[in-house]
């Protein structure tokens, strides 16, 4: 064994081309994730709007969607704003501001996950168990599906925040923040659609 190839790169010296390709790859990945959620929401609508439903969607005494979801939604939107600000700062060559906002985004992301956990806990406290009915099942499964994707984004955000803190991003080269932003903002939009669907679906039995 001579040496393992440390890296292999078809773009060579064309670093702008490499960055563009990475962004396109991320957009394609966002399409993949969107299809996952689109299918899930469609499936939700099919069972929710089924005219021949064999069991009640939601019994009268089952708790409403927890209020915490409203707070977590606000936190997630705020995290998108800070992430975008971080990008704007680095474009203006303000590395310190970029790092500050990237780190803020990371903690807002963590707060979102904790708040989603609190929402689960509050439902569970009110004895809404997943076996109860489809209203409960879809609440737990759909929010969990979203949180799993958020955790992936949080992992990436952690790396970005650390690199921003080390001032590795410059005005000329900061593709990491852009890639992370594409994913994070998309998950933000997906959450808004998902939350709206869950909320409208939770109305009436």
């Amino acid at each position: 064994m001579k040496s393992l190839e440390p890296s292999r790169d078809a773009f060579g010296s064309d670093s702008a081309g490499r960055d563009r390709a990475a962004r396109q790859g991320m957009w394609v990945f966002v399409i993949v994730v969107s299809v996952v959620f689109a299918a899930t929401i469609l499936g939700y609508l099919v069972v929710r709007l089924n005219p021949h439903m064999t069991a009640p969607w939601r019994a009268g005494n089952v708790a409403d969607l927890p209020f915490t979801l409203l707070i977590s939604t606000g936190v997630l939107i705020a995290s998108s704003v800070t992430l975008h600000t971080s990008l704007k700062r680095v474009r203006r060559a303000d590395q310190v501001g970029c790092a500050r906002f990237a780190i803020a985004t990371y903690w807002l992301g963590v707060a979102f996950v904790l708040l989603q956990g609190e929402a689960w806990w509050s439902m569970w406290r009110q004895k809404v168990v997943i076996e109860e009915n489809l209203y409960a099942w879809t609440f737990y499964v759909l929010t969990a599906l979203h949180v799993i994707h958020i955790l992936g984004g949080l992992f990436a955000l952690g790396i970005v925040a650390r690199r921003a803190g080390e001032q590795k991003y410059t005005q000329a080269s900061h593709n990491g923040i852009v890639l992370c932003g594409i994913y994070w903002h998309s998950l933000d939009v997906i959450w808004l659609v998902l939350y709206a669907t869950l909320w409208i679906g939770s109305r009436s039995a």
Binding site: Y44, V47, N50, T54, A55, P56, N133, W137
Partner: peptide, 13 residues
């Protein structure tokens, strides 16, 4: 879990 949106006993399809 034995329950879900494909399970008709729970209103699934």
């Amino acid at each position: 879990l034995n329950v879900g949106i494909f399970n008709p006993s729970m209103g699934g399809d």
